[in-house]
């Protein structure tokens, strides 16, 4: 599904990713762990298409297409979703409006009819219920004045509505209390199936107790230095990153 080969990326002439490789097959959950500044979030942003990041070498293929050739909105429509580490506040744009626009943009991309207001409202209500999200959150401006936990839950809510093929969760667990963490994890787990993949970027092993990965990768200084099964996460928790 996703193949990242020898990816080199720089920001403001500083190289952040230095030959990153990762292959994700359909249905797999990959966790990328690593210390601050190792390039985890850069990878997430590059996959979503952030322009400030310059790819200097390497390639990224998503379902047979050259991902780097696509605009951010095309990547989203193709099925990539990034749950932001720091979701952006957009005053004056209602959450529900953003979501309907996004969903309908994706449907239009695939030559499907747009959802009517009432159909969308029904869909949104269903998803909200499972995530324990208050209905007034839909009417509020996107992330504006949301608490940290609300922002992260809102990202997962958007993911549930947009039903991506590949979801990249960038430190979605940071700043969450245990209850919120469980809700987020349930939101992810309920979507796991043989056709959908996840890249879960995290600092802590804690999240992986709830979202159990198939593979764990350790990222240090812009590349993956070790890969393994979920047991690797426990090893990291014990020994820290110092050994890498």
């Amino acid at each position: 599904m996703l193949e990242v080969k020898n990816l080199h990326v720089q920001v403001d002439d500083k190289e952040i990713l230095k030959g990153m490789n990762i292959t994700v097959a359909p249905g797999e959950v990959h966790s990328i762990m690593g210390p601050n500044g190792s390039g985890k979030s850069t990878l997430a942003q590059v996959l979503a298409g952030k322009e400030a990041y310059e790819v200097t070498e390497g390639e990224v293929t998503f379902q047979g297409k050259d991902l780097l050739d696509l605009e951010p909105e095309e990547r989203a429509c193709e099925g990539i979703f990034l749950a932001f580490q720091y979701p952006v506040e957009i005053p004056g744009v209602a959450n529900t409006y953003l979501l309907r626009e996004a969903l309908n943009a994706k449907r239009e991309y695939w030559d499907e009819k747009p959802l009517k207001h009432i159909e969308f409202a029904k869909l949104a209500r269903e998803k909200m219920k499972t995530l324990g999200i208050d209905e007034d959150l839909l009417k509020r401006s996107v992330n504006a004045g949301f608490s940290g936990g609300e922002k992260k839950r809102n990202e997962i809510f958007q993911m549930q509505i947009l039903e991506p093929t590949l979801a990249v969760l960038d430190e979605t667990d940071s700043g969450l209390d245990i209850d919120a963490l469980k809700i987020v994890a349930n939101g992810v787990n309920s979507m796991r199936d043989s056709g959908r993949s996840f890249i879960v970027i995290t600092h802590y092993q804690r999240l992986l107790n709830y979202i159990v990965p198939d593979f764990v990768h350790v990222m240090v200084d812009g590349k993956i230095v070790r890969s393994g099964g979920k047991e690797l996460a426990y090893e990291l928790e014990e020994k820290g990153y110092a050994g890498f």
């Binding site: 605009e71 951010p72 004056g92 626009e101 401006s141």
Partner: peptide, 22 residues
């Protein structure tokens, strides 16, 4: 904010319109 909207599948043009309308 524009990137955030685009990352959800909304075109650059529509994202700008949304921002201006807000």
């Amino acid at each position: 904010a524009l990137f955030y909207l685009r990352s959800r599948g909304i075109s650059m043009r529509q994202a700008k319109i949304i921002m201006l309308r807000a």
